[in-house]
């Protein structure tokens, strides 16, 4: 059995373990399952990053041709990830802070943190700095849909809110209520 990497039609490079048939079965041996879970979470996060996706649902394992199909299914060896297995992988990712249930209080859908919240905070702050928007008030809408596309274009509002709250803790941003909702003002670090 030769296991090799594979490039999907969308250009994502699948690791060689993705062509190993037992990779798609939940392993009864806890030590082995830990390896499987680690490999899956790595794969899921890098694919989400590649496609700029933020949500993974247990149902995605059952949607042929869906946006997760390339990863959750391997037609070349006729294997797919079963929903129950995906649910346990998701729970594992949540326990490692690589994902969080979104909306909360359910376990069928998660928000994927392929950048950790503090990394998003840095990206946000860098963006505000490099586009010269320090000390101006920006609405959340202006950040999520800027005239010039940025790394933050189209990120979920939950992610943005977490990033902003991290920045407020280090006195680098201030939440301000504006007429049509919330706004934020970025503050330069040396208090100019």
């Amino acid at each position: 059995m030769q296991l090799s990497t594979h490039t999907t039609p969308s250009g994502f490079l699948l690791p060689s373990i993705h062509s190993a048939p037992p990779f798609f079965t939940q392993q009864p041996n806890p030590a082995t399952q830990a390896i499987v879970a680690e490999q899956w979470s790595k794969l899921i996060l890098s694919y989400a990053r590649f496609r700029n996706m933020f949500t993974l649902r247990v149902e995605d394992a059952e949607i042929p041709g869906g946006e997760w199909d390339e990863v959750l299914r391997n037609e070349r060896i006729n294997r797919r990830l079963l929903p129950a297995h995906l649910a346990s992988l998701i729970a594992d990712m949540v326990s490692k802070n690589l994902a969080s249930y979104d909306p909360p209080n359910q376990t069928r859908s998660v928000l994927l943190w392929w950048r950790q919240p503090d990394e998003w905070a840095e990206v946000l702050y860098q963006w505000a700095d490099s586009t010269g928007q320090m000390n101006t008030i920006l609405t959340f809408y202006e950040i999520l849909d800027p005239p010039v596309p940025s790394a933050l274009s189209g990120i979920p509002i939950t992610v943005l809110r977490r990033a902003v709250s991290i920045l407020t803790k280090s006195q680098r941003a201030q939440i301000i209520s504006v007429s049509d909702g919330e706004g934020v003002r970025f503050l330069s670090r040396n208090g100019k």
Binding site: P21, Q27, P28, R79
Partner: peptide
């Protein structure tokens, strides 16, 4: 081999 030694992996989707 599977449970005690972790020398093999289980595959439940074999044709």
């Amino acid at each position: 081999m599977l449970l005690r030694d972790g020398l093999c992996w289980l595959d439940e989707q074999d044709e």
